[in-house]
Design a protein around this nucleic acid. Structure first.
Lengths: 185, 185
DNA sequence: GTCTATACGAAGATAGAC
DNA sequence: GTCTATCTTCGTATAGAC
């Protein structure tokens, strides 16, 4: 197993994907051409197609990267001795929003309405994040509010739903509020 | 003033826009070609360009049509003797969601991140709808809960914000839940 | 105003050298 | 693996007849 080689390959892939995310953030999923990504990444078209089958494949990678980025922190909150309240959790989630990622995230929502592969990615990442929020709210109910665990899990469900909705709305408003930079055409 | 002629012109415009919305709902904003819209509308490319300057113009018309459709009913609620509670209002808004329009709406959000004209349309329609929700919640506070009007308007603001967020989240979930029909390619 | 036919440009993807 | 150069397809928009 050439593990080191695989690692280098993966590094290039993320390098390309990150350049793509920057382009998408400025110009959108469809208006971004391969030429834009070559300019942003410093690589060539041939090189990009050596790492991604086609543009759709690259868009999927960018979507995963953008949508997954939020996941790390929430699980830490749930494990804390004094988990944050739902209001506090929401505040922290909103504070962590990056405008560029918000734009790509909302673009991804739009794409998910017609592209099944993107749809699955959005559904998966949304479900995973909701589960984490649910865990965090449950932990707060148990550890701070002293509910008993079985009741807490049930009680947490509509609260997690609300937190997610308010977070996603804020994502949309951030994307609307902070326009992309002018295209340097 | 050829008022009748103008009315016919406007009729054709909406005929074209409605065909466009159906195409967008299936295939998305960018993957829909003018040829698709000619097929759906029964008109020709030349005819379409006689009514819309270009595709972007047509997309804007479709966005307005889709996003405005929700507006009519809410103002009636606010004027009622017993305005609906926020929960009831939200239920009615959600019940009125049409999956096809939800998809185009979410696509419009995505487009708004990079297209200033679409951004303005989304921002305007969102603000208008939020204002109507705010009026409705205020009316409920005054007429049903017997708050005094000045206090009610202020108290209604965060509630309206929540109703909007939950509604928009439901719009997104509807778009995710109901995939577009297969493209009959 | 509506049609058919087409010009023009753009972008995805590949070939082949290094 | 990476590059340059190019092929090919597709879609917007227009021209010109009716």
């Amino acid at each position: 197993m050439p593990r080191l080689t695989d690692a280098r390959k993966e590094l290039r892939r993320t390098q390309i994907a990150e350049a793509a995310v920057r382009c998408f953030s400025r110009n959108g999923l469809k208006r971004t051409s391969i030429a834009d990504i070559t300019a942003e990444s410093g690589l060539s078209a041939g090189s990009i197609y050596a790492h991604y089958r086609n543009k759709a494949d690259l868009v999927q990678a960018a979507a995963r990267e953008t949508l997954d980025k939020r996941d790390g922190t929430i699980s830490e909150y749930a494990a804390a001795d004094a988990p944050p309240s739902p209001d506090e959790l929401l505040s922290r989630l909103i504070a962590a929003i990056d405008p560029a990622e918000a734009r790509v995230g909302v673009q991804t929502w739009g794409e998910s309405t017609t592209d099944p592969a993107i749809r699955d990615i959005v559904a998966d990442t949304t479900d995973r994040m909701r589960a984490m929020v649910h865990d965090c709210v449950t932990a707060w109910l148990v550890k701070v509010e002293h509910h008993d665990p079985p009741h807490a899990r049930e009680f947490a469900t509509p609260i997690a739903h609300q937190v997610m909705a308010l977070y996603q709305a804020e994502l949309l408003y951030t994307a609307l509020r902070t326009p992309a930079e002018e295209t340097p055409s």
